[in-house]
């Protein structure tokens, strides 16, 4: 447990929070678009949604959650001075992210094999676009994790801690956005 933290301090750097906020605003527009089209044509939505495999979506949620957990633990250990443990914890985090990408490709592949493509209907347009843009974030995030791993293995200093925190915040955002996107696309 991190006991009472005495001073208020923004983890990571300010810019990354601004970026994260901007990205979250963009995804909020995605969420609203999705629900607006659902409102306009609910039957089509429900029918198309039933063609999705909820298990893929849920497994991917669990993978990203676990990945985020490893990153949070890694940053926590790194801050405590156990920098090498911190670096090692980023490896399973990366692996979970790769798992997400793998499942996503499997899922897209199945859909395309079943003849469901970008322009099949409104629902699938939004499905491919929004999960695709999210997938792009995951790919960028994997690059970030690799970079963090290299930083964490190097000589520890204050700026390295800040870099780790900033990168971690980006990765958690990727997780957070999927947590909202998943129920909107697959569940409700």
């Amino acid at each position: 447990m991190t006991k009472n933290v005495p001073i208020k301090r923004l983890p990571g750097e300010e810019g990354v929070w601004g970026f994260v906020f901007g990205d979250m605003v963009m995804f909020t527009m995605f969420f609203a678009t999705l629900l607006f089209y659902r409102y306009e044509n609910g039957a089509l939505f429900a029918q198309s949604q039933s063609l999705l495999n909820q298990n893929y979506g849920a497994m991917n949620t669990l993978l990203l959650l676990t990945s985020s957990w490893f990153v949070a633990l890694g940053v926590f250990q790194y801050r405590k001075g156990k920098t090498q443990t911190g670096a090692r914890l980023l490896i399973p985090a990366f692996a979970c992210g790769v798992g997400f990408v793998g499942i996503k490709f499997l899922e897209f592949g199945e859909k395309i094999a079943a003849g469901i493509t970008l322009n099949s209907n409104e629902f699938f347009t939004l499905y491919y676009m929004f999960t695709g843009i999210h997938l792009l974030h995951v790919l960028v995030g994997l690059g970030v994790l690799f970079f963090l791993w290299r930083v964490a293995r190097g000589a520890p200093d204050g700026s390295a801690t800040q870099t780790l925190e900033s990168g971690g915040i980006f990765w958690h955002m990727v997780d957070l956005l999927w947590i909202v996107l998943f129920p909107l696309i697959y569940l409700i």
Partner: peptide, 9 residues
Amino acid sequence: RWAGFLNCW
């Protein structure tokens, strides 16, 4: 530095 993040966004 925030301009860097703005550009990436």
